[in-house]
């Protein structure tokens, strides 16, 4: 849930005392009308807090943790391996598959992939939210999130498919899965890996620790999902074309 304007004002006074609203907007790159509107409505978006924190060199996760609704963000866990891998984009995974087979055409697991030969794209990627939830799902996770937050399962799924997840749902999902509370905010792109306390290179080492079989299966799954999504898109596109051909 968005942050109450009163609590936000108090927090703002703490990190930037005696600074005018327009200065804050200028430094943090928020549109003045946007902030004004959020203040008038009494609800400030989490992204606003994140932008302002960054502008004033405060860690956005600890800034959010200062608010009641996000107090759970205070106790940080390291991310699990599957979470780390879920935040690697599909093209990066495919590159890793190719790099390994090139490095070792015999098919015997390579001792070490050529480290640093390529850097991974920063999280989030095109399907990072869904991949993250799938990585931490024990089969009952969606059910528990829906029970805890009251969101209808189909609305939750719709957000995942659209690669979105409201911050409070991201945190609720982390808690329901028992993983680090900030992971979901990384997957939705609200905060960066570093801001969430993920060690540098953690995703790369998680990738390197995957066996040939694990990596290939994972890449295959991702490709299959991507293929299905593309097919669906093409199908919808064909339908639209037909409508326009006949009725346009």
């Amino acid at each position: 849930m968005p942050i109450p304007a009163k609590a936000f004002q108090r927090w703002l006074h703490g990190i930037a005392p005696h600074t005018s609203t327009s200065d804050i907007c200028r430094v943090s790159g928020i549109k003045r009308t946007t902030l004004a509107q959020q203040l008038v409505r009494g609800k400030v978006a989490e992204a606003t807090v994140v932008s302002i924190s960054r502008a004033y060199h405060v860690n956005p996760v600890s800034a959010l943790a200062a608010f009641d609704a996000y107090s759970q963000l205070a106790d940080a866990h390291p991310p699990t391996r599957s979470e780390l891998v879920s935040q690697i984009s599909t093209p990066d995974l495919l590159r890793a598959v190719l790099a390994r087979s090139a490095a070792d055409p015999g098919g015997v697991p390579a001792a070490a992939a050529p480290a640093g030969s390529s850097t991974l794209d920063p999280a989030p990627h095109a399907t990072s939210v869904k991949n993250w939830v799938e990585a931490i799902d024990d089969g009952e996770l969606r059910h528990r999130v829906s029970a805890a937050t009251g969101i209808a399962p189909q609305n939750y799924s719709a957000q995942l498919t659209a690669n979105r997840l409201a911050p409070e749902l991201a945190v609720a999902t982390s808690l329901a899965a028992g993983v680090g509370p900030a992971s979901g905010l990384v997957a939705t792109g609200l905060v960066t890996e570093a801001e969430a306390g993920w060690p540098p290179g953690a995703r790369q080492s998680a990738l390197d620790s995957l066996s040939e079989g694990e990596l290939t299966t994972l890449a295959g799954d991702r490709l299959q999902t991507l293929g299905r999504a593309l097919r669906r898109q093409e199908h919808d596109h064909e339908k639209t074309e037909k409508i326009w051909e006949n009725l346009g």
Binding site: A126, L226, H237
Partner: peptide, 15 residues
Amino acid sequence: WSERSGPRQKTSTAK
């Protein structure tokens, strides 16, 4: 409308 806004943009999944 769609003709004016040019060829369809790829959506996020098409990356």
